[in-house]
């Protein structure tokens, strides 16, 4: 065992009487204080207090216990290794439990918002402002855009060749119908009829667009771009279907009508 280094501080053995004159106790004490001042000035530690403990500490502990009990109450059966995540912890249905999904919006607004996204496909040629330019015709103010919906649906779904409504001939517009859902078609038609300065103010509904896709599939030359002659002959009419009040409420995601007050 390594003894404390007493030799550095010459001092008497405390068990022997103080007889040695050669050693000055005060001097050795001073030296100790000088060299290990921080240690020498230390006070004793004592953990033996007996002050009365305030009741509010126990009251606080009781509150903590209650809070802990709330957590424990969710634990179900203890040491049940077959019971996994508690029923009801996760949402079964997005519309359950007060979460009603996104709030309904006006039909025209909802169709326009969705249509603007679908129009992303058309921007490359017709431009973000719908004015076309160069080799591409403008959608703003176009008679065929603002006119009969059957004609417009056919052009979008199958493309166009030959002269346009203004009589001018541009290049061939390729068919856009592949993979296009009735919702996409309805919303993009509504969008171009009400954007770029166009103010038709009506909504081409999903039901109308569904009819349009059927008509397109029933064409004799299905998939071929249309010409002015075919459009004037077969498609100079509106798509069948009930009109929708532009101010009616629809779900912004599905575009399905939503009953008021729900």
């Amino acid at each position: 065992m390594v003894e404390p280094d007493f030799s550095a501080y010459p001092m008497q053995d405390p068990h022997k009487p103080d007889l040695d004159d050669s050693l000055n106790v005060t001097e050795s004490h001073d030296r100790l204080v000088r060299e290990a001042a921080a240690v020498a000035r230390e006070k004793r530690v004592n953990d033996g207090g007996r002050e009365p403990v305030s009741l509010w500490l126990f009251a606080a502990s009781a509150v903590i216990l209650i809070a802990a009990g709330l957590a424990l109450g969710k634990a179900g059966n203890f040491f049940d290794y077959d019971e996994y995540v508690q029923p009801g912890y996760m949402r079964d249905n997005l519309n359950e439990g007060g979460d009603e999904g996104p709030p309904p919006v006006d039909a025209l607004k909802g169709y326009m918002a969705k249509g603007e996204k679908v129009y992303g496909k058309c921007i490359g040629c017709h431009g973000p402002d719908g004015k076309g330019g160069g080799a591409y015709p403008s959608l703003a103010g176009s008679q065929w855009v603002l006119g009969e919906t059957d004609r417009l649906a056919m052009i979008i779904l199958n493309g166009l060749q030959g002269p346009t409504s203004t009589g001018k001939t541009y290049g061939v517009m390729p068919a856009q119908g592949i993979g296009m859902s009735p919702t996409d078609l309805a919303s993009v038609m509504t969008y171009i009829r009400n954007a770029f300065g166009n103010t038709k103010g009506d909504v081409v509904t999903v039901a109308m667009a569904t009819e349009g896709i059927k008509i397109s599939e029933g064409r004799a030359k299905a998939g071929q771009p249309l010409t002015k002659e075919e459009l004037d002959a077969d498609h100079a009419k509106d798509l069948p279907g009930d009109p929708l009040d532009p101010a009616a409420k629809v779900d912004p995601v599905t575009l399905n009508p939503v009953e008021e007050g729900k």
Binding site: A68, G69, A71, L72, K74, A75, G76, N77, Y81
Partner: peptide, 13 residues
């Protein structure tokens, strides 16, 4: 097992 997280929460509280 469902009791583990809640037992943990109990002890953490």
């Amino acid at each position: 097992p469902n009791f583990l997280p809640y037992l943990g929460a109990f002890a953490a509280i």
